[in-house]
Amino acid sequence: MFGEQQRFVLLLIAPAALLLLLFQVVPIVIGANASFRDWALYNPRKTWIGFDHYVAVISDPAFLYVVLPNTFLFMVLSVAGALVVGLALALLLNRPFRGQKLVQTILLVPLMVAPVIAAIMIRWIFNDQFGIVNVVLEAIGLDGQPWLVQRWSAFGIILLTDIWLWTPWFTLLLLAGLQSLPKEPFEAAAIDGTTTWRVFRFLTLPMLRPVIVVCVVIRAIDAFRTFDIVWTLTGGGPGRSTELFSLYAYVHAFLNLDLGRGSAAAIIGGLIILVIGVVLYRLVDRIAKA
C-alpha cells in the first residue's frame, strides 16, 4: 500500500502519534464532551445542557475580572522579567572572568529545583511570623508584612518565584545563542571603538533575535498554564485573588466537584492559548525568515 519510504516515515512517528492520540487527543475529546453535560462528580447525570457551562464561566465575574487579568498579567510580567534578567546574565557569562564556571553553576541552580520545592522555600522565607524577610525588616525597624495574605504582595511573590525558577532557562539558551554568533562583526565594532551599549543594541540584540523569540514563545505558553507554584504558595488566595486559569479549572473540577464546568473552563483557556500560540508562531516564522 505504501512505498518503502512512506512506511519508514510512518513507523518513525507511529509510537509518538499513538501515545499522543491515546493520552492527549482522547482526553481532550472526552473533556470537550463533558463540558456540554451536567456532569458533577457526586451526581454524574451526564445530561446534555449545551453551552450552559461556557456561559457560566464567561459570565463569572471571578473568571472575567480576576482570573483572566491575573493570567495575562502573570504571563507578560513573568516572561519579561525572566527575559531581561536571563539576557543580562547570559551577557555576563559570555565574558571571560575568574570563577566564571562557578558562577555559571550557581546561576543554574533554580533549574534543578522543583517548582513545588521552590514554592515551599519561598513560603517559609516570607512566613509572616518566622520568615527571615520579616525578621530582617523588623531588625532594621520596619514592620513585617503578612506577605502571602495580601493580594498584590502575594501576586508579586508568585511572580518573583516564577522568575527565579525560569531565568536560568533563558540564560542557558541565550548563552548558547551568544556563543554561536559569528565573531567578525564584533571584531569590526571593537576596531571602530563602538561603545558597549551600541554593540549590544545594534549587533548582539538583532543577531540574537531568533533565539529570543523562540524562548519567549515557549515560555509564554508555559507561563499561561502555571499551576504548581500558585497552588503551593497561596492556593489561589487570599480569597480567590491570585487564581490563575489552570487553578480555576482545577478548583471547579476537583474542589467544587463540577467536572462539566471545570472542563468548560479548561477548554476556554485552551482556545485562548491556541490563538496566542498561532499568532506567536506566525511571528517567529516571519522573524526567522527576515
Partner: peptide, 13 residues
C-alpha cells in the same frame, strides 16, 4: 498545536 494545549485541559479528563 498540542504543545500549546494547557496541561489542565487534558489531564483533567
Amino acid at each position: 498545536v498540542f504543545r500549546c494545549v494547557p496541561y489542565i485541559s487534558w489531564v483533567l479528563p
